[in-house]
């Protein structure tokens, strides 16, 4: 494989984290995933503050955002990313179980790059995560400033 790329996964539910990591692992993308457990933590990571103030520089190549999280929800994180010039170019994918049209509309209004509804069937979920990971972390050329890594 070529370079491994960093993926930021913001998800409050540990089962969802595990399921997603499992699905990414099945596609051999798991090693490059950073998991944060709510929106506030996701912003801390992106802005290198709080617990993440010592992390390496550089933006993830893609952010997978759950819509509903404690403290700061996914839409708010998305809004802040797209308002910030240094983060705006980073692709953001909503990964959520909500099929509500309202969420979809608001996400696209805020400039989301993709909106993926988690399927209930695990097999289909694995497939969705694989395609997602392959496209955004491998196929897609990340904007300048994203963290790349040699194998």
């Amino acid at each position: 494989m070529s370079q491994l790329r960093r993926i930021l996964l913001a998800e409050d539910n540990e089962h969802d984290v595990e399921l997603t990591l499992n699905a990414l692992a099945e596609n051999r993308l798991a090693n490059e995933v950073v998991v944060v457990r709510d929106g506030a933590e996701a912003l801390d990571y992106l802005y290198r503050r709080g617990a993440y103030r010592l992390r390496e520089e550089g933006n993830p190549v893609v952010v997978l955002l759950d819509l509903k999280m404690p403290k700061v929800d996914g839409l708010e994180v998305l809004r802040q990313i797209k308002q910030d010039a240094s983060l705006r170019q980073m692709p953001v994918v909503m990964l959520t179980s909500s099929r509500e049209e309202n969420d979809l509309v608001r996400s696209y209004e805020l400039g989301v790059n993709a909106y993926v509804v988690k399927p209930v069937e695990f097999g289909r979920f694995v497939e969705a995560v694989r395609e997602l990971g392959v496209f955004w972390a491998v196929v897609n050329e990340a904007p300048p400033g994203s963290v790349r890594r040699s194998p």
């Binding site: 399921l19 499992n22 509903k68 179980s97 509500e100 695990f122 097999g123």
Partner: peptide, 21 residues
């Protein structure tokens, strides 16, 4: 109802997912 559709569906998805795993 939106939250129900979002949050209550998650545990089901989890059950389904973990059983599969």
């Amino acid at each position: 109802s939106y939250s129900v559709s979002h949050d209550l569906r998650a545990p089901i998805r989890h059950i389904n997912g973990f059983v599969d795993m």
